[in-house]
Design a protein around this nucleic acid. Structure first.
Lengths: 128, 128
DNA sequence: TGTATATATGATCATGTGCTCATATGTTAA
DNA sequence: TTAACATATGAGCACATGATCATATATACA
């Protein structure tokens, strides 16, 4: 077995490792899509919004209060989440009641929370 | 005038929703940690590196070839992944053999791939 | 020893992006 | 209607960050 040997570009006689990996990796497009999803989740404000909405529906105003941020910032971020189809809203009077719109994303966040806190967040109710 | 309140306290008929959610959300610190992890995964190059390393150990040179990027870029990104303790490396001669160093991250990526491709990537071997 | 290889890293630059401000739209109440 | 409320959004700015270039370090080989 020489799969873990030299496998560099032109200088190397057996770039097997690269070819083996290449044959098993997902397409570039898929990786970019997954990265795009993670990128959206990679902002404290946005993942906090999603986390909050996984507990209850909330309006812009509530989210601004909860996260101690301006209505404008929350609204801008909600727009990004809406565009990504991660949340949807329903008008109620002059308010906009937001809720999650993607089970997959919720699962991913739960998985991440569970793994990174080693015991999940369900039993971990500490507040800021 | 005290109408300068950015929050909804005064106008919201039931700020209970906010309190209920607040009592059930993870700490701000945890959310920031999770966001930081997602942020690292939110770059095509980095998640592609991690995805590739989940299949086999590879050196900088191999990754550069595989992802069609400069050695410098790969090395810079690997440094970020090393700092985040997502990968580790082992010197073999003049090469640096990289491998994953975090099972949690691998699980998160697998979860994301499975959910976002609706059937996982194990059977999806398309290349770029 | 000298040279090519392999990787690491600081500096620079260009781009991306989040926040704020100002403003617009729409809703409810007086 | 007018006024206050709730949200949306474009513009501008400040900051973060990824890619490139130049350079440094270290190893292998002739």
């Amino acid at each position: 077995m020489t799969t873990e040997k030299d496998t560099c570009d032109g200088h190397n006689p057996n770039p097997d490792a690269v070819e083996i990996v290449r044959s098993k990796t997902c397409s570039r497009q898929i990786m970019e899509d997954v990265a795009a999803t993670f990128k959206i989740l990679g902002e404290p404000v946005r993942i906090s919004i999603l986390h909050a909405l996984s507990i209850n529906t909330l309006c812009v105003c509530d989210l601004a209060e909860l996260l101690n941020m301006s209505h404008s910032s929350i609204s801008h971020q909600l727009r990004i989440l809406r565009t990504a189809r991660m949340v949807r809203f329903e008008k109620q009077g002059r308010k906009a009641l937001y809720r999650l719109d993607d089970d997959h994303v919720e699962t991913i966040i739960q998985t991440a929370l569970a793994h990174l806190t080693e015991d999940g967040c369900t039993t971990d109710r500490r507040n800021k």
